[in-house]
């Protein structure tokens, strides 16, 4: 097994782990963290697969994608955390509520 394949499998593992945590945990901070783990999994896969050819230099395009993706993830996480604080203040706990106001 070569290194690129190993890292790709770890990436897919992280993605699945994050997906599992996103579904089973009710606490919003855990859900947000789970999404971040999923994102890291995708990024790891992209970086690992950047070594497409036998040449020592990897393909730079996936690296650029990962940089862009990290920027997006940071923005999304910031929004999610702010929203979580507001939701926690309304619901009196950091979990989603199914009850409507009326």
């Amino acid at each position: 097994m070569n290194t690129a394949l190993l890292y790709s499998l770890v990436g897919i593992g992280l993605f699945s782990l994050g997906l599992y945590a996103l579904i089973v945990h009710a606490h919003l901070l855990r859900k947000i963290l789970a999404i971040n783990v999923m994102g890291s999994g995708v990024f790891l896969l992209l970086i690992a697969l950047a070594k497409r050819t036998a040449t020592p230099l990897p393909d730079a395009v996936p690296h650029a994608m990962v940089i862009t993706g990290i920027v997006v993830t940071v923005a999304a996480t910031a929004l999610a955390l702010t929203l979580m604080v507001r939701v926690a203040m309304e619901n009196h706990r950091a979990e989603l509520s199914d009850q409507s106001q009326e």
Partner: peptide, 12 residues
């Protein structure tokens, strides 16, 4: 409450 819960669910 409704809007914030809706927004959070939508975001996830």
């Amino acid at each position: 409450r409704d809007a914030l819960n809706g927004a959070m669910r939508y975001l996830l």
